[in-house]
Amino acid sequence: MNWLSPPRVRSALRIASALLGLGVTGLLLATLWPEPDRVAQGAPLSADQPETLAPLPEAPVTVLVIGLDADRLGAASNQAAPEGPANADALLMLRIASKEPLQVLQIPTELGVRLPGEKDPGSLAQLWRRGGVSLVSDAIRDIVGLDAGDPKRYVVMPRAALRRLVDGLGDVDVVLGQSYQREDKTQGFNVNLQAGRQRLNGVQAEQLVRHLPDPKHLSQRRQRQTIFVEAVIQQVKAPSGIGTIADLVDQLDGEVETNLSRSEQLSLAAAIIASPEPVAVSRLPLAERAGEQVLRQIRPGSSLPLWPQP
């Protein structure tokens, strides 16, 4: 039979076109709806290796972490000062890779942002109550100069989840350069932390990261949050850390909001444990504060991206 006859050629072209169409459709779907992070296949490992939690991610993964000033997800009030709907009280981006130091970017919550159609700017912190993860993520993408669609992964953590995280890890060790005491009866919130080496439980860790005697001292609070983040990472990397991670992920389920699957969370935890030291903490370049203003701006002349790829 002549396979090059016109009817057979037309049939072959139709089949090829259909296959090509399926391939293009699959590519578009993969672009619009990213697959879960790919993980490498590994051989059997000993129990003390991080890969026993889950296979390590094949490529760096960027995660936006939003710390809320409300005690729980969906709380009607943040029970903070000023009282009202929840705000983003801390904003971090993590770039996690098993063979590179963990990258942490602190994003000032007091950055001034003006939404389209609005005359006056508001703080980045207040965008959470206006549009949740989507709006906060879009604003950060524009400010930092990230690629379209980044960051693809996020974790939203209220205060109760932060306490459970620390208690689940078995407390965290910090070294404080000064003591902090404060009593806020309106919030039912007390701070009593002593200078020197301290081992903090969940309640004390919350005191450290929330302490803010003056709204203009947010940069000092970020320094304390850096101390806390580094302490948590060290506790995760400790020999006892691997054994607590899986249970901790289960405990936090329902207390945090995230688009990371359980297997992805375990994979990223394994990558953090395997990542070399030291942790690299970056901060955005801010313009000098003018007078008593609370809202801040990015330093003029700063070129994008403000957090370049390593």
Rank of each mutant, 00 (worst) to 15 (best):
Q220Y: 12
R224D: 00
V172Y: 01
I245C: 08
V209H: 04
R283Q: 15
L266P: 09
G202Q: 06
V203H: 12
L260M: 08
I273N: 05
L176A: 07
R224S: 02
R262T: 10
S263A: 15
G243V: 04
V279I: 13
F189Q: 01
Q251Y: 02
A195M: 08
K237M: 09
L165N: 04
S282W: 11
Q297K: 15
V229S: 00
V209R: 01
A246L: 06
D253E: 15
P213G: 06
Q265I: 07
A274W: 06
Q220C: 00
L284I: 09
G177H: 10
Y180E: 08
T258I: 04
E206L: 15
S282H: 15
D167G: 08
V249R: 08
I242Q: 12
V256M: 11
G170P: 05
M157I: 14
Q194C: 00
V156G: 04
D184W: 07
V249D: 11
L169A: 10
Q297V: 00
Y180W: 10
E206R: 03
V191F: 10
V175L: 12
K237E: 12
T258N: 03
A271T: 05
V203S: 13
R221E: 03
G243E: 06
R221P: 08
L252D: 04
N259S: 02
G241S: 09
V191M: 09
L212W: 05
D247S: 15
T244A: 14
S267Y: 00
R199S: 07
Y180T: 04
R197H: 13
A246G: 12
E183K: 12
F189K: 02
E255Q: 14
A274G: 05
D214K: 03
G291L: 01
P213T: 04
H217M: 13
D167I: 12
L266W: 11
Q178F: 02
P285Y: 08
A287K: 10
K185Y: 08
L295P: 02
R197E: 13
V209Q: 01
E257H: 04
E183M: 06
A287E: 13
D253Q: 14
A269N: 07
A195V: 06
D214L: 09
P158L: 01
R296S: 12
N201W: 02
S263E: 15
N192H: 15
V172L: 10
D253M: 06
A238I: 05
E206I: 12
E183S: 11
R164T: 14
G254V: 03
L286Y: 07
R221N: 07
T226F: 00
G188M: 06
A290S: 14
V156F: 02
V156D: 02
L260H: 04
L266K: 11
G188E: 11
G196T: 09
V191I: 12
I233K: 07
A287G: 08
Q234S: 15
N201T: 05
H211D: 12
F189H: 01
R289I: 09
L169M: 09
V249S: 12
V232P: 02
D247H: 14
R210C: 00
R289G: 03
R262H: 10
P213N: 06
M157W: 05
V156M: 07
V279Y: 07
I272V: 15
V156W: 03
D214N: 12
I242A: 11
Q220N: 11
R182H: 14
G170K: 01
